[in-house]
Amino acid sequence: MHIVDPTSGIASSETVAVAVSEGSRAGALCGLSNSKPGAHDLLEAVGRRLADDHGIGPNGLEAKPSAAVGADPELLDHLAAQYRLAVVAIGD
């Protein structure tokens, strides 16, 4: 059977340059909170554990301006330029 792929469409071709060097661990990790109180607490704890147990850090902590909206492109560009990895929490 031949079907039209219901998931098909035109993918975005936009890319963002990564500013952090490959060998650096500083600033490599960011916690991105959905701005709910539980998410902030959770990400702070994750950041402490990564620093204490694995020596990873310093770690950043960022948040969306509102839990009700997606992260806007400016915030995502900022994160991509500053960090190599983001841990996202919805910790409601």
């Binding site: 219901p6 098909s8 975005s12």
Partner: peptide, 21 residues
Amino acid sequence: GPLPPRGVTPTLRSIAANAVM
């Protein structure tokens, strides 16, 4: 335009495929 959260822009054919489904 593109549909979040995936960011893919639907085509008329993909919308029609979903309408058929």
